[in-house]
Nucleic acid binder design. Sequence first.
DNA 1: TTTAATTTATAAAAAAAATTATAAACTTGC
DNA 2: GCAAGTTTATAATTTTTTTTATAAATTAAA
Lengths: 405, 405
Amino acid sequence: MDFFSRNIKEINNENRLYAQKRKIVSVLMKSGEPLTIPDLCIAIKTSVPKGTKLINELIEGGIIKEFGKRETENGRRPVLYKVRPDFAFTVGVMIQLKGISFCVFDMEMEEIYRNDKSTFILENTRACLDEVVQFIRENITASGVVTGSVLGIGIGITGRVNTATGSSYTYFDSLDVSLSQYLKDKLNTRVYVDNDTHLIGLAEQVFGKAKDVQNALIVNLSRGLGLSIIAGGELVSGGQGFAGEFGHMQFLGTGNKLCICGKRGCLGTEVSGYALEESFAEKIKAGETSLLQSMQGETENIHYGKIIRAANNGDVLCISLIHEMGFTLGKALGNIINLLNPELLIVGGKFTVAREIILEAIKSGMVHTTLSQPLRACTLEFSSIGPEGGVKGTGALVLRQLDII
Amino acid sequence: MDFFSRNIKEINNENRLYAQKRKIVSVLMKSGEPLTIPDLCIAIKTSVPKGTKLINELIEGGIIKEFGKRETENGRRPVLYKVRPDFAFTVGVMIQLKGISFCVFDMEMEEIYRNDKSTFILENTRACLDEVVQFIRENITASGVVTGSVLGIGIGITGRVNTATGSSYTYFDSLDVSLSQYLKDKLNTRVYVDNDTHLIGLAEQVFGKAKDVQNALIVNLSRGLGLSIIAGGELVSGGQGFAGEFGHMQFLGTGNKLCICGKRGCLGTEVSGYALEESFAEKIKAGETSLLQSMQGETENIHYGKIIRAANNGDVLCISLIHEMGFTLGKALGNIINLLNPELLIVGGKFTVAREIILEAIKSGMVHTTLSQPLRACTLEFSSIGPEGGVKGTGALVLRQLDII
DNA sequence: TTTAATTTATAAAAAAAATTATAAACTTGC
DNA sequence: GCAAGTTTATAATTTTTTTTATAAATTAAA
């Protein structure tokens, strides 16, 4: 029963006041900088005396606080207000194939507690789910944050997730209820579940370069290939939350490899860290040479990260493989740019280490499929939030679901 | 200076009342059926006495009117209210390659005047633009509608249009100002411009099967190939309004024909009425036979409409050509379904005459590229608004831009 | 250094809105 | 056919909000 859990269905003055207070908090959270009474009154379309009253009540409630005065050209300097960073907290949990991360964020989305467990292995079993619950419980205690002040827990999990219902289709799918409902019952707080790719998109929209962009694509290229879509200023989730299934798209391509989805020729079989490992091994088998060969005894099971590093160090084979991948990715993205006409394309993930190589490759691929006008209108940038983006997204997920961010 | 043109930037009580009245009109427009005082008070979150006062003022202003009483189970029957159909009008103009249509719609979006000029030929010249202006002026006069009661003119034009600025990139692009600004100055009323495909999408969302759907794709397959996208309940226009460029996408495909865009292998060169005409001629040249052959002296320049009709009459060649097209379209759409996870796919355009053939073909194509979960979640339907959809969309465009629909 | 101009914040007065109470219109059950 | 129950609509009362006026805090200019 925190500030955000009031039921505002009934129409009366008390609920109207509450709605306005909530709007003030939301405006302050979204603004990124502290605001004045006049600012807030304009934002919530009310008179200054009433706005003042609401703000004072929010201060008394410990939700917002004064934050100095604004330097102005002339006139009396207005007092600035912002949301108290310690008014409440969000918890974010990122469940990866190998490893699980737990984070507590304050209202300024600063990480105030973190614990990574690298020994965790994600399996579709009840025991694994129990381990997750246990891990979350232990860390909530360890973080020392008061339970009542946690607004909710955002869970990021790899695989397919139905955002609307909060069920995971890839893991923990044998529960009687949705994953989010199950965890809610176990942990006794709000729980929201989404997949890692969407959370990177959310982080990019909230903290990153897509902040004030209405239409953007966020590509996440690491061992897998993911895509987040922002259209009309909103993250696109689709009917079941499956939107962004980019890795299984079938574009023009030379390859015809079998994908885990059962189909042949999926983009992910050509463009992904996994695909890079495979094609590297193939090339070596076919007699080509690489610096990596001499450094390691075996050429099989070379992690794609090493191939990227080798490319950065000038290894010709690795450069050409990554270039080819980027080119194919660019062609595929070009089709999506035609379809959605985004102003911005953000490339994130582990491959961004090889910036120059991948950038040039994507660009030349894009030219082959993108119409000139949408191409000119679309800026290509690299993610600025780094590989930790997904984790920041888990915390942001709670605030987004509460509609205060 | 009509009801919708008030500037509500300043925050005072008068503007708040105006905003609430506008909301009432908007709620009534969107509802589709007349509403009661309690309904409207809940919708605008106000008390019954205040809502009553606002409603009475709207009645005095000639904007809404009583519409009988609602039949209820018990209690006093509430009076129903709706927007007066004749309170204001919208004008819609659809500019096609051959032919131009002018329509006046009332507030219930009923066509109350219409004039089609089939002799019109669209050219990128000032003379042609003058002809358009003249045609609009004449018809506004002829329709007998009072100029002050026209809320605005919605223009639909084929080709690429920047929705945000109202400029056409394909036609009338040598003006000093945007097309919409130019027409606004000439016609002295609000003017909004969008392309025909987006307007079909809008019509489908406002009047058609996409009415209450959050995520949908609307394919327009006639002589060209167009796509409208609804994501998160909103029509996607993209940064410049180019979203939906489906005809120039490059998917898996056997063909490698040169497209008007300069690239090879665009989807539109394989899937469109134009492509059907070409492939029909090719097949006949290659020695295949068709019922159409004996009916006409020549096999060149056979309109795709005839090929569709022949297919419906059992012509084997025509059936196989359309089936092949539908199959390719289905494969391409499957990729987009993976990407956007829509609940609904609406197929519209002239090809819907051959319902059974095209439906089966699209479905079997989709299976090849769509992942099982998004595929299961997506319903395939035919458009119900018919080939006139685009024209209805022009009128709806005005109401949508005024945010009352 | 004072005065004018400007903007924010608070106080007092006036207006508007929400509650509450009541009347009106209607069904159902006895 | 009348009372009880239900919902809508209006009237009266109370509360809330806005408006207007004024004070406070600041810069720039006379």
